[in-house]
Amino acid sequence: MAIRMLIRFTPAKPKAGEEYKFQVVAQHPMEPGTRKDAEGKLIPANYINLLEVYFEGQKVAEIRPGPSTSANPLFALKFKAEKPGSFTVKAKDINGDTGEAQAKLELA
């Protein structure tokens, strides 16, 4: 199943030269592999272990989470606004499921 993701810029339209926060939220259980279900059975591990962030086709960050990131994880980075452009985020979990999301950065 594709991993769904949402992207947000804060401020939504930064001024040129301004710092802005780049946040990605993924819809994912991020099972660490140590939790038990109601019957006491171990829930198998299933978590995003790679998240790549591209701006205008160029990789700007690579996040490699271990088994201990919260469910529906939030990943936040900061950038300096230089030019408008397109962000792409690619995610992959340990079961091989992947997801991709895009967002356009506009400047004020």
């Binding site: 710092e19 780049f22 991020m30 660490p32 962030v53 701006f55 160029q58 990789k59 700007v60 960050a61 690579e62 996040i63 490699r64 989470p65 271990g66 201990s68 990131t69 919260s70 994880p73 939030l74 990943f75 936040a76 980075l77 900061k78 950038f79 300096k80």
Partner: peptide, 18 residues
């Protein structure tokens, strides 16, 4: 918990962890 390689970003990272 996590490794974050920064190629173009400012030196900052935030998340939620278990």
């Amino acid at each position: 918990l996590v490794a974050v390689q920064l190629m173009g970003g400012l030196p900052y990272y935030a998340s939620r962890v278990r």
